[in-house]
Computed example of a mutant assay.
Amino acid sequence: MKRILIADDHEAVRSGLRAVLEQRADWEVVAEATDGGKAVAAAIQSQPHVAILDFSMPRMTGVEVARRMRDYRLQTEILIFTVHNSGLIAQQAFEAGARAFLVKSDANKLLLAAVESLLMHRPFFCTNSIIEYDGGPGPHGERHHYGLTSREQLVVKLVAEGYSNKGISAILDLSVKTTEAHRAAAMRKLEVNSTAGLVRYAVRSGLVEA
């Protein structure tokens, strides 16, 4: 029996994925998670063959979850699942260790093929109109800023979700001073001078959903 983890903060999405996946008699959804932290814990506990991770989850992106899973040396194949048809996210996903990238609009026709590919330890990368990762204008007309580290991106995501520096520090197990340094570095690189600017970037780059 092939074990599958689904991590997405929308119950309807998880239910839909489960219904599609469990059409296969030899596949079983053994765990579900509603945010990034729970996804890491569920992966460690259930040791799935495949993890389907929503990119825009609370607390951690699917890409950050993928990195954490690699840190724990889990032998899980990872699929990043997103509404954003973005070359930036796709590159981040593969750099983090994911081996499949799927836009949610393609799920009905491609999800089973993507999981089958991962179960054979083959990558799967197919979208309708993937945007090149070239530093040019993104899907909303903004210009991406690629200088942010993964930790800076995570801090920006948490800022956009409404967490204070103290709250972010608790989630990431950092000192408040270190969190403030990451936040300041992100603002400098993004050339913004307010929390609102960080939130706009987080929405436009797909770190959080609008």
Rank of each mutant, 00 (worst) to 15 (best):
I78N: 02
F81H: 04
R204Q: 09
E116N: 14
L112R: 03
I52P: 02
G62R: 07
Y163K: 15
G97M: 09
N193M: 06
V159Y: 07
G167Q: 14
A31S: 12
T127M: 08
S205M: 04
K166N: 13
E64N: 09
K104E: 01
L172R: 10
F94A: 08
V29F: 01
I52D: 03
P139N: 12
A41F: 03
G37Q: 14
A33R: 08
A42E: 15
Y72G: 01
S15E: 13
A107E: 13
L119W: 00
E11H: 06
D26L: 09
R67T: 11
A160I: 03
A19C: 03
Q91K: 15
S205D: 04
D106A: 12
M187E: 13
N128T: 10
A93N: 07
I89S: 03
V176E: 14
G141F: 12
T76L: 02
L119E: 01
P137Y: 06
V40W: 05
Q153V: 01
F101V: 05
L17R: 02
M57G: 05
H10Y: 05
F81T: 00
Y146G: 15
K109E: 14
L154N: 12
T82V: 09
K166V: 15
L118G: 03
S164I: 12
A7F: 00
L88V: 13
G147F: 03
I6Q: 04
A113H: 09
G138D: 11
Q153S: 09
V63M: 06
R188V: 00
G141T: 12
A25M: 08
G135M: 11
E11P: 04
R188W: 00
G162Y: 08
I44F: 03
E191F: 01
E152Q: 15
Q23C: 05
V192A: 03
T179C: 11
E116A: 12
R151A: 14
V199S: 00
Q91A: 13
I52E: 05
K2I: 08
S129R: 13
A202Y: 05
R204V: 06
A185E: 14
G167P: 07
L118E: 02
H121K: 12
I89W: 01
V83A: 10
R68K: 15
G36M: 03
S105V: 06
